[in-house]
């Protein structure tokens, strides 16, 4: 299966800008479906970015993050061609991991 994570990491000088888009329903547990039944919570709880074995960014998320979440941040110390490892875990214990080359 194709990865749920799409990442774009671009380096400019010492700064690497990272944008990530993940496919996930991010159900908060407060929304009802057409039949009036509550859709149970299903959302990503933690998303981590690692560069060179070091954690550069961690997101702790609740159900208030939009469906198919997007996040953008920037960090120093990486160069073009370096690898960035991205992984998430949701409240049901599902996970996905991918690596992206910094451009």
């Amino acid at each position: 299966m194709a990865s749920t994570i799409r990442v774009r990491a671009t380096s400019s000088g010492d700064i690497t800008e990272v944008q990530a888009l993940i496919q996930h329903p991010m159900d908060s547990g407060f929304v009802k479906n057409a039949k009036g039944e509550t859709i149970p919570p299903h959302f990503i709880q933690q998303l981590t970015f690692e560069h060179d074995g070091k954690n550069v960014f961690t997101a702790d998320w609740g159900g208030g993050i939009s469906k198919d979440p997007y996040v953008k941040f920037a960090f120093k110390g990486a160069k073009k061609g370096d690898e960035l490892k991205i992984s998430w875990v949701d409240n049901k214990g599902a996970t996905d991991t991918t690596t992206a080359k910094i451009q």
Partner: peptide
């Protein structure tokens, strides 16, 4: 609470 992001040294 919607989100909490951890910013290690070196991250903007």
């Amino acid at each position: 609470l919607i989100a909490r992001y951890n910013i290690p040294a070196g991250t903007l």
